[in-house]
């Protein structure tokens, strides 16, 4: 498994990196390398054949995390394991600990970055689903401009239109979960690589009667891209989440409108069924916790 030959740049500063990708000739296809856990497989299998690779690994500025008001900024080169070990995660975003226990393996999480996982937007991306319920925002820079885009809209776009060829993501900003909220990421694993066939991320606030006061809910693994189910979130407000029969009735129609994918292990139809069960069980579990 050998990739096509390519030019390789390892700039020392963000500015140098941005210069590298500014004014590329139309023939130049560039790929940004972060932890490489998605990119390297794609290169080796020649699913993508870029002729320039810009490695962000030497840019120390991108390896920092910073607490900001009510949130955390995570640099583009912060590894998943570093991120998960941050105080902010245990205090304000414990759902990412669930994700870390279920996404990839220790070697992958040691190399893989959070931002890289966000940029990849794999349909099965566990990290993305958790990012969505934390209202993650990406900071995107080119030499001339810096802009911010919510992960939710970024993930919903076709791959080609997410980033321009002269842009890269420098960091993401995660919001803290509301005080007194509870959360969970629950996934049903594909038997081959352990990716998900149905994953659900939930951040939930319960009222005094332990009914749902507010909820953020995102799914991955079953649908063609990870997404928030906002209409379902609205409908769940005020609902008793321990009533599984009722939940089941509420959830299914919301899934009917979504697009699912499948393979020989779990068809699209099965994933839809399984996702409905996964959502219901996760909500019921949280309501009882």
């Amino acid at each position: 498994m050998i990739p096509h030959s390519f030019d390789y740049m390892r700039p020392q500063t963000l500015n140098d990196a941005l210069k590298e990708i500014e004014n590329l000739t139309p023939q130049t296809e560039v790929a940004i390398l972060a932890g490489g856990q998605s990119l390297l497989s794609a290169l080796k299998q020649r699913r993508i054949n870029p002729n320039l690779i810009v490695d962000l690994g030497a840019i120390s500025d991108l390896s920092t995390t910073r607490e900001v008001s009510d949130g955390l900024e995570v640099g583009a080169m912060v590894r998943q394991v570093e991120f998960v070990g941050h105080r902010f995660v245990s205090a304000h975003a414990p759902i990412f600990q669930d994700v870390a226990a279920a996404a990839g393996d220790p070697m992958i999480r040691r190399n893989g970055t959070l931002v890289g996982a966000f940029c990849e937007v794999d349909p099965r991306g566990d990290w993305v689903a958790a990012g969505l319920v934390h209202d993650a925002v990406l900071e995107i820079s080119s030499l001339s401009e810096t802009r911010r885009e919510p992960l939710e809209s970024f993930a919903g776009k076709p791959k080609e239109s997410r980033l321009k060829s002269n842009e890269l993501v420098t960091k993401c900003i995660l919001n803290a979960a509301p005080e007194n909220s509870i959360s969970a990421y629950r996934k049903c694993k594909h038997n081959a690589v352990g990716w998900s066939i149905a994953g659900v991320a939930v951040v939930l606030e319960l009222d005094k009667e332990r009914k749902c006061r507010a909820i953020k809910l995102a799914v991955a693994g079953a649908t063609t891209f990870p997404q928030r189910l906002r209409a379902l979130e609205l409908e769940l407000q005020g609902v008793d989440l321990s009533d599984e029969d009722n939940l089941d009735q509420l959830i299914r129609p919301h899934l009917a409108a979504l697009e699912f994918f499948g393979d020989s292990y779990a068809s699209a139809g099965y994933r839809e069924k399984r996702l409905a069960i996964q959502i219901r069980r996760t909500l019921a579990e949280l309501s009882k916790s």
């Binding site: 594909h190 038997n191 081959a192 690589v193 352990g194 393979d263 020989s264 292990y265």
Partner: peptide, 9 residues
């Protein structure tokens, strides 16, 4: 064959 053949972990 399927792109992701499975062997048990």
């Amino acid at each position: 064959p399927t792109a992701e053949p499975s062997i048990p972990r």
